[in-house]
Amino acid sequence: MPDLGKYAEAVLSSYAVSIALIAGLIVVSVLRANRVSKQLQEIENKVKSNG
């Protein structure tokens, strides 16, 4: 861990907030991608079996 001096708080909070936001964005995107592709698969199967 480098010595950040008197600005430690500012630097650390910047990294924390940014990484949290990026991680959140990635998690939301991936979860939605999985959910939608699963739902679509279900509907495609249903449509195919119907006709």
Binding site: I22, L25, I26, S29, V30, R32, A33, V36, S37, Q39, L40, I43, E44, V47
Partner: peptide, 27 residues
Amino acid sequence: LLFIALVLLRTRTEIRARRMRVLLARE
């Protein structure tokens, strides 16, 4: 690169969501 990856991933999701809406509407 992160931006490109996320946009690709999300575009795939949007394409699938769109197809899903069309299928449901057609049904």
